[in-house]
Simulated scan of single mutants.
Amino acid sequence: MTTLLNEAYSFIFEEELLKEIEEVGVLRIVKEGERIIEIGDYVKAMPLLIEGAIKILREDKDGDELLLYFLERGDTCAMTLSCCLGETKSEIRAVAEMETKIIMIPIEKMEEWTAKYKSWRDFVFQSYHSRLTEMLDTIDTIAFMNMDQRLMRYLQDKAKINQNEVLQITHQNIAYDLHTSRVVVSRLLKKLELEGKIKLQRNSIKVIDL
Rank of each mutant, 00 (worst) to 15 (best):
C84W: 05
E112D: 15
E97Q: 11
Q172A: 14
Y42R: 07
K199D: 02
T180P: 02
I174T: 03
D75A: 06
K197F: 13
E87D: 13
N6A: 13
D148Y: 15
D64R: 00
E7A: 13
N146V: 01
Y154V: 01
E14L: 02
F70W: 05
G52S: 04
V124G: 00
R187V: 09
K118Q: 12
R153A: 06
L71K: 12
I37M: 10
S10F: 01
K31D: 09
A53P: 11
Q126S: 11
I174D: 09
H171A: 08
V184S: 08
C77H: 00
L194P: 01
F13V: 15
K109H: 10
D137C: 09
G196R: 08
F11T: 12
L49M: 08
Q163P: 00
R121A: 05
V184F: 02
Y128K: 14
F144T: 11
I142E: 13
Y117V: 06
M135I: 15
A143I: 02
I21D: 00
D157N: 13
Y42C: 11
T170M: 11
E87M: 03
E7L: 13
I169R: 13
C77G: 01
L4F: 03
S204A: 15
V207D: 12
E91S: 10
G74V: 07
V24I: 08
S130R: 11
Y117A: 00
M98W: 04
Q201I: 14
A143C: 08
I174K: 03
K158T: 07
E16V: 03
E32L: 09
L210Y: 11
M147T: 09
I169A: 12
A45E: 04
E97K: 08
K19P: 14
D75G: 05
T2L: 15
T80M: 07
A143G: 06
R58T: 15
E15K: 04
A94Q: 14
A115S: 10
L189Y: 03
T80C: 10
L178H: 09
L194H: 07
R187Q: 12
L66G: 09
F144D: 10
L17V: 02
N203P: 05
L66Q: 05
L136N: 05
A175W: 02
A96L: 01
W120V: 06
L210P: 13
V43G: 05
L188K: 01
Q156F: 02
D177I: 00
R58V: 15
S90D: 07
E59G: 00
Y42V: 14
V185F: 08
